[in-house]
């Protein structure tokens, strides 16, 4: 039998997986093993599968994903820290036929942007919010986030989060599920292929909801920040499964069909 050459392998009919064209060729600036990269990919795959690249406007936050617009090959706006849902509100209201989503970290969405988040959810803006919860401020060098677990160390909780002094972690996702404006609220993860598939389904559902003008869909992705947690990527994912998931259990929280 003839040897298989690289050229044979590269034939179109042999193609089983391809990076979506909705991601640019720019190398990701994230730390190796960080969940942001995977989350970017599946959001873009969903937009590609729904064929709505030309109708989508994304809002980037301030946080490690501040440069999301470098990687997502769609029209994007970059918001001030915490204000993405406010931008998204206006974008959607002024362009009701467009698809609008925000992509935000936990500091951005659940600390400085709590008001914008809650009010956009409560108004039931017809947008998608993708919420990357890594329990820390990655970008600024590992400070405590509102989502940091009790006892968890960070550079501003160097002896571990003392809930009596620093307050309790905020379960933003459960909170917004209480609001009548949210239609679909779910918590997912991207550390295994199975979880990636589930998360992708959730994101698809969120954008389908928007297509049907149903209201606000909120998708939390519990993710690691190996740099901020001072672990290697494998340790970080194990730590996430052992510590983050019990506190932030995965699964749908609210589904109004």
């Amino acid at each position: 039998m003839a040897e298989i050459t690289k050229e044979d392998i590269r034939k179109p009919e042999n193609l089983i997986y391809k990076k979506t064209d909705l991601l640019t060729d720019k190398p990701l600036s994230y730390c190796p093993g960080c969940g942001h990269g995977t989350a970017h990919r599946i959001v873009m795959e969903v937009l590609e599968e729904m064929d709505i690249q030309d109708k989508t406007i994304g809002i980037a936050p301030v946080g490690c994903s501040v440069l999301a617009y470098e990687f997502m090959n769609i029209d994007m706006q970059q918001a001030a820290h915490g204000r993405a849902p406010a931008l998204a509100t206006a974008v959607k209201r002024l362009n009701p036929d467009k698809f609008v989503f925000t992509y935000q970290g936990d500091g951005d969405l659940a600390a400085i942007g709590t008001a914008e988040t809650i009010h956009a959810c409560n108004r039931g803006e017809n947008i998608v919010i993708i919420f990357i919860n890594n329990g820390i401020y990655g970008m600024t060098g590992g400070q405590m986030a509102p989502t940091t677990l009790p006892g968890m160390k960070s550079s501003t909780s160097p002896y571990g989060r003392d809930v009596h002094m620093m307050g309790n972690p905020l379960k933003m996702t459960e909170l917004v599920a209480q609001l009548p404006g949210t239609i679909y609220v779910t918590r997912q993860a991207v550390h295994t292929p199975a979880n990636v598939r589930k998360t992708k389904k959730a994101i698809r559902k969120a954008f389908e909801n928007q297509k049907l003008n149903k209201g606000l869909s909120f998708v939390e992705i519990v993710s690691n920040c190996n740099s901020g947690w001072k672990m290697n990527p494998v340790q970080a994912n194990e730590w996430m499964v052992e510590n983050m998931f019990p506190f932030y259990p995965l699964g749908d929280i609210k589904v109004n069909d």
Partner: peptide, 26 residues
């Protein structure tokens, strides 16, 4: 960020009773 990081590490609540709090926004 070193200002707050330093204060948190120094435990001024034990040294002088000073309160140090990370707020949710500026």
């Amino acid at each position: 960020s070193e200002v707050m990081e330093y204060l948190m590490a120094e435990k001024p609540h034990e040294r002088t009773g000073m309160v140090v709090l990370q707020a949710e926004s500026e």
